[in-house]
């Protein structure tokens, strides 16, 4: 068990303090730095909150398009990297140019990319 508050909760509280109390006292390049820090904390917070569930879903979805590498025993990140490398090859070789594979690949890319934007810059999705 981890102690509370958890990492994402700490980041949220620290970021709000930075934004509400510290930022108004700053100007110029220090203000710009503080905004960058708050942004970095938000990204880290969202990444912690989402956990590795989206990546497990991504790997499962990849498995419906590609024969997955022998991923048993591989760490999730490593398995994802290998599967996505295989997906890159498939796209580059034109095997996702048309037909059902095209539709499947596009749907997967849209979903995973939307998920990444939701971590990096959720405002972009409106």
């Amino acid at each position: 068990m981890r102690d509370q508050p958890t990492g994402d909760q700490l980041l949220a509280t620290a970021r709000d303090l930075l934004r509400e109390d510290v930022l108004p006292t700053l100007s110029g390049s220090q203000r710009h730095n503080a905004l960058m820090i708050a942004n970095a904390m938000s990204i880290a917070m969202r990444q912690l909150q989402s956990g590795d569930e989206p990546e497990r879903r991504e790997l499962a979805a990849l498995g419906k398009i590609l024969p997955l590498p022998e991923s048993h025993g591989l760490a999730l990140q490593q398995a994802l990297t290998e599967a996505n490398r295989a997906l890159c090859r498939l796209i580059r070789e034109g095997r996702a140019d048309s037909g059902q594979t095209r539709d499947q690949v596009r749907a997967l890319l849209l979903e995973t990319t939307r998920q990444r934007v939701a971590i990096s810059n959720p405002k972009y999705l409106g």
């Binding site: 996505n84 890159c88 796209i91 140019d97 995973t112």
Partner: peptide, 11 residues
């Protein structure tokens, strides 16, 4: 890190 969405764009 592989970037399949970017690969899609490059294709």
């Amino acid at each position: 890190i592989p970037h399949p969405a970017l690969e899609w764009g490059l294709r």
